[in-house]
Nucleic acid binder design. Structure first.
Lengths: 148, 148
DNA sequence: TACCAATAGTTAGTGTGACAAATATATAAA
DNA sequence: TTTATATATTTGTCACACTAACTATTGGTA
């Protein structure tokens, strides 16, 4: 009987994740941020780790390689990122934020933190801990690597 | 400073939702279920509510109309669902599970409940309550309708 | 040196999500 | 009745997730 509930929770999880993304995307659009939510995730990680390869970046943001290839294509087209040939390994690139990309990150960072905050109204720091613990447990139950 | 954490939680939420879907999809494929996770959600809701219109169904599963149109197209192509013209309103359809669709639902239902259960190992019923409460709060914070 | 498996990245195909716009029909107002 | 507005669904476009297949390169090994 509780079994029936499990399916329900996976539904709520999916629905909420989509809502969170959709809400952020609306705010991004309203503020004319010129990037999508996923593009922002990539930009932000690049600003925190220079000279990553695409594989390293893929592991950081938990996206697969084809998806990342396309996101980077788009960010290159927008002039925020450059693919620099790796000096030793001709198969790979070092990803590099352009000046324009750096500027974009510092411009958007505070605005996006503010947008993200909205979701957590009426919730306590203890709730965050519980939420994180449950999400991580689910992730690991399904074969994901545990958080370091 | 806690601000930085918020962005992190939205990342974990997205990552976990994708993992849950990915895990289920792998099991669906291994079991040759012949439907995707989203197609299953639609089938299941149709089995619980006969003669829905697409709009009613869209509201149940929280998908937008174009997405639902396409999922139903695929389910029709697979022979699980039929669009029956609405007797009074020529704009709309009544969605109808075929015999094959009914059979598919009863065949898959127990298997899928079992798959869903996996995510909740090491978690208590109290955790489920907390999780549901937090997810619903986030959903409502971002403008979603509250649960009835 | 020649072969071979592993790795980095890309491309193509399908399904889904969001959004805008179009079509057809229904209903209400003038 | 005519007009206006609202509703049900579809179509088109872009972005992302996942799979499979492909190219190029690397590094180990016979």
């Amino acid at each position: 009987m509780t079994q029936e509930l499990f399916a329900r929770y996976s539904f709520l999880l999916d629905r909420t994740a989509r809502k969170v993304k959709q809400y952020a995307q609306h705010q991004f659009k309203a503020g004319e941020f010129d990037v999508t939510v996923d593009q922002w995730l990539v930009l932000k990680n690049l600003s925190e780790n220079e000279l990553l390869s695409q594989t390293e970046l893929a592991n950081l943001v938990f996206k697969d390689h084809p998806t990342l290839t396309r996101i980077i294509d788009l960010l290159c087209k927008k002039g925020y990122v450059e693919r620099v040939p790796h000096p030793q390994d001709r198969r790979s690139f070092q990803l590099h934020l352009t000046d324009s990309g750096l500027e974009k990150v510092s411009e958007l960072k505070p605005k996006i933190l503010e947008i993200r905050e909205k979701a957590w109204e009426n919730l306590t720091p203890k709730d965050f801990e519980e939420f994180k613990r449950i999400l991580d447990t689910i992730y690991q139950n399904l074969g994901g690597p545990s958080e370091e």
